[in-house]
Design a binder for these strands. Structure first.
Lengths: 239, 239
DNA sequence: CGGCTGTTTGAATAGACTCAAAAACTGTGG
DNA sequence: CCACAGTTTTTGAGTCTATTCAAACAGCCG
């Protein structure tokens, strides 16, 4: 799990620290199966979770039952540090794979931050990074074609997943999503996602079928997704 | 400027505190005119700003020159607490009105948070609230019709602006935006924004013309925007 | 093998976009 | 108070992307 610091920040030591602080003060451990909700929309949310193992996603529900996927979180992520305002979560968190989480009561944060003053700033850093990621996704969805949105999402997930297992070198991976997930994350119908994926396969860019993703032509994919290198770099951060 | 705490959180005292801490440690004051950049995309960003007076917006630029407005900030907001990773800002911040800001060097944060351990958590709270706001905007843009997106944006801005001057009671206000700004924020062309605004006026919902917004029928507006009451409440938070 | 979830395909529709031009409004200076 | 220059808003016609609805097909797991 060796990881080199990205740029000037050199912030990894803190990321490790917050994980170990949560580890040291955790009051519970939660194991969930794929498809199960860790937090359902409307649940009381007085707990912070540290995702030890697995993939989960954050989602909101609309009046008419449609689902918007807001964020995919990989192991190492800190979840549920939102609340602050209301006592119930507006969003849900659902497992994509079998996952394990450690729980920390929200009210222990303030005393904790007295002993470890860096904890607060580190949480701020994590939240700010999420915010930036969300800004990027917002831009992608607001301004991009369907092809670009799908390419961007798959590239993001590929890069972030790869960063966790750097020993892996192949352009092939298990991505625990359905086309419906992709649609809910990009704001497209799953039918249209399917058509876009077909086109991407026919064009020799990538192949996604039953949760198996193959990058056929990395350069073309990056060009299709129309990513700034700066962005790709920020995806390498721990989440 | 009396403000009652929203729900269980009762967090306002902290919000005041961070402002006063920045006030006490500020190293500079910056006045800008409408249309001027406070931070241009690509600028080095080693400074945190506290917006004392005015409206500003956060934006990103795409390869092809299009602009995506990410967030509108009102007086009281804390800006530029992102960076952390790279030394240059991916985003720009531009003034919508004449504005005044106080500046705080980013590197004084860590020592500051040692003296005031709450500062870190408070910054985390602010960033998390921004993140939540961005999640809502993301959902709006990804899933909503043009009519809904425009209604939602105008309602959000109306509510947030009203919360700052509670003495105001009229359904009429000065909103320092052009239809182009609305388009860049909602991911629509300004031409189409115009058509949507016409329809909203013809339907007696609202009237927006040359930076003057009139809410004609608040209930219809809320229904058109399809907002959960919970959301509207969270917009009342200080920004 | 059978049931279920997930994927693929087709035809018709609708919502938003492009390009282009004209009209309305603002603020400024005489 | 009026005229001017520059923005901002409005309107029109044609196009295209993504949607809807519906049905068939493929792969996975028990």
């Amino acid at each position: 799990m060796a990881r080199r610091g990205g740029g000037e920040g050199l912030d990894e030591p803190w990321a490790l620290e917050i994980a170990s602080v949560i580890a040291g003060h955790r009051v519970g451990e939660k194991d969930v199966r794929a498809g199960q909700d860790i937090i359902a929309p409307g649940d009381p949310c007085d707990t912070i979770y540290h995702l030890v193992r697995g993939w989960v996603f954050l989602y909101g529900l609309l009046q008419d039952g449609r689902r918007q996927i807001l964020h995919f979180a990989l192991s190492g992520a800190v979840l549920g540090a939102d609340l602050a305002d209301s006592g119930t979560s507006t969003y849900g968190v659902q497992a994509l794979t079998e996952s394990r989480l450690w729980a920390l009561p929200h009210k222990s944060l303030r005393p904790l931050s007295r002993d470890h003053p860096e904890i607060g700033l580190e949480l701020a850093r994590l939240a700010a990074r999420d915010r930036t990621l969300t800004y990027d996704r917002l831009t992608s969805i607001a301004q991009g074609s369907a092809r670009k949105r799908v390419a961007q999402l798959l590239l993001e997930l590929f890069v972030r997943a790869r960063a966790q297992w750097p020993e892996q070198r192949r352009q092939k991976m298990h991505l625990p999503l359905t086309q419906e997930h992709i649609g809910d994350a990009t704001g497209l119908t799953s039918v249209h996602v399917n058509r876009v994926l077909s086109a991407l396969r026919d064009d020799g860019v990538l192949h996604f079928h039953y949760r198996r993703l193959t990058i056929l032509d990395p350069d073309r994919l990056v060009k299709t997704a129309d990513i700034e290198p700066r962005l790709a770099r920020s995806w390498l951060g721990r989440h």
